[in-house]
Amino acid sequence: MKTIILEGSARRRGRTAELVEFLRLRLPGEVTVVRAYDTPVSPCRDCRYCLSHPGCAVKDEMKDLYPAIEGCDNLIIASPLYFHSVPAPLKTIIDRLQPYWAATVRGDEDQISTKRGALLLVGGAPPFEGQFLPAELMLRGVLSDLHASCEDIIRMDDADRRPLPQRPEIQTQLTALAQRLSTL
């Protein structure tokens, strides 16, 4: 079993990294964490190459990420929220996933197999209505375009004051997600 975790956090020991590490240790098989801040990816240029050709015209670190995504069984997107969305480096990677959406336009969307997905979203603020909604809507669409079911969305609010060790309810959710993703 192969799992790819796209992590959008700038902080290596931040709250999002805590969730990712907790989950990673409970997943069997090969688990690869792709830290967006460590992955030099150029923005999408809207050159429209992918509308008529499989793949992307821009040749950079995404060339290694595309086959990893295509070959994984599980795809997890983990991110803190910055002004109701994901940080720019993760958004840059997401924008470069355009070839998968474009495959539906070309009519050859079978280039990526069905997989399971999940979202881990971290908000530093105390809970408020709609705190995670904008990011959830966008990231559910990303998973859908990548033919990944959204098995769960784990939301951790008030993260600036309450880390994962103080959140048994979040630990239980992560453990349950790992168990679901572990069964084929």
Rank of each mutant, 00 (worst) to 15 (best):
H84R: 11
T104P: 02
I153N: 12
P134V: 06
I94R: 00
G14R: 12
R45K: 14
I93G: 00
S182K: 10
P126I: 11
N74K: 04
E18Q: 14
I5A: 00
V105W: 03
L27N: 04
D95Y: 10
G130Y: 07
E61H: 11
T3K: 00
C47H: 10
L19D: 02
D160H: 13
P87K: 07
I153W: 12
R140L: 11
T92R: 12
S85Q: 09
P99Y: 01
R35H: 14
E61I: 06
E61S: 13
R167F: 01
G71H: 07
T39Y: 14
N74Y: 05
I69D: 00
G117Q: 01
R24V: 08
D160W: 13
I69R: 00
A176Q: 14
T175E: 15
S79W: 00
P43M: 10
M138S: 13
Q173W: 06
H53R: 15
R45N: 09
Y49T: 08
A57N: 03
Q131S: 10
V41G: 03
Q131A: 11
R13E: 15
G8D: 03
A68C: 01
C72L: 05
I69W: 03
R15S: 14
L65M: 09
Y66R: 07
I154L: 09
T114L: 12
L97R: 01
D60C: 06
F132D: 09
I4A: 01
E7Y: 07
V31C: 00
S182Q: 10
H53Q: 15
A176K: 14
E136S: 11
R162G: 00
H147K: 15
F83K: 04
N74C: 10
L65D: 08
P87W: 06
R26P: 00
N74W: 05
W101T: 04
R155K: 15
P163I: 08
I5V: 14
V20P: 02
A176E: 15
P165I: 00
Q111K: 12
P54L: 06
I77V: 09
V58Q: 08
L19I: 07
T175R: 14
D110L: 11
R45S: 09
L184F: 13
T16R: 04
R140W: 10
Y100N: 01
P40M: 04
Q131M: 13
L137N: 12
I4W: 00
P54G: 06
L51H: 07
Q173T: 07
P165E: 02
S79L: 05
Q173N: 09
E136D: 13
Y49H: 15
L174D: 02
L27S: 04
L81D: 11
I4L: 05
T92A: 13
T92W: 08
D152K: 13
